[in-house]
Nucleic acid binder design. Structure first.
Lengths: 135, 135
DNA sequence: CTACTTGCAAAATATTTGCGTTATT
DNA sequence: AATAACGCAAATATTTTGCAAGTAG
């Protein structure tokens, strides 16, 4: 049975307070403002529990540390390969997709993720400027 | 400038020889059969180069080690949460999706990935058996 | 009480990097 | 020659885990 704890509550509250898809370390630093003696291991353990309970989502994007978010509904993500920021994409996902893949493969699908990669507008502008200036 | 090397060639050939989405360690072990003194660092470095050149794809699925594959066309993946195997899903991806997200966000999208998670048929059967036997 | 949770520290994984040497162009 | 790539080993992350003590149910 899962027992409640101050740590769990604060971790969840911190994650719900942002839309920035933070890393474990960022969450750890935020939570420490309230619980200075919390350990990184506890953060990992609770994020894992919360993910298993379906209360949060974990994103594994290219290049190491996992990102987390409080949203658990299916939506797209965009990862900027320059600045590494992660954006939610406001485009309704295809409702039929899961069912079709379900049927075609015989797999029991519990969730899915769609991730776009590229360069965000801001970084593109910076790059354009740099290019015209340098040559 | 990128120079060719025996190592690069063998790594690429090994990856092209399988559809199993191997980890770096698996690739390393395979390549060592031909080049026993190759170092793990070289495998990492070359996989990174090949990915940057767009010759291979890197998949970052939940739970640590990256997986690689020689395919670079857009297709879906299914990850079994029990046995951790990765399957290609034979379902044509939505052609309009990239364009729509492109337009809506103003991002310059270079690629995207769709990953389904769940339990594969084989593991489901194993679980069903275990359950009926244990109670 | 019992069993889940915590903090701490150590271990286990995974990936990157510095450096002197070797190979490609 | 110049520079990219290599092997090796050490350094960095990143994540997990064992354990003794604390806390919720």
């Amino acid at each position: 049975m899962i027992k409640r704890s101050k740590q769990k509550e604060v971790i969840l509250r911190v994650l719900r307070s942002t839309t920035s898809h933070p890393t474990v370390t960022w969450i750890y630093d935020e939570v420490r403002k309230e619980i200075p003696r919390i350990s990184l291991g506890t953060v990992y353990r609770n994020l894992k529990l919360l993910r298993e309970r379906g209360e949060i989502s974990e994103l594994n994007l290219n290049s190491a540390p996992s990102r987390f978010e409080a949203r658990t509904d299916i939506h797209y993500h965009f990862i900027c390969e320059k600045c590494r920021r992660v954006f939610d994409v406001d485009e309704p996902p295809d409702k039929r997709l899961k069912g079709e893949v379900d049927q075609k493969t015989g797999f029991q699908i519990s969730s899915y993720q769609i991730e776009f990669r590229g360069v965000c507008r801001e970084c593109r502008e910076t790059m354009d400027k740099a290019e015209s200036g340098e040559k």
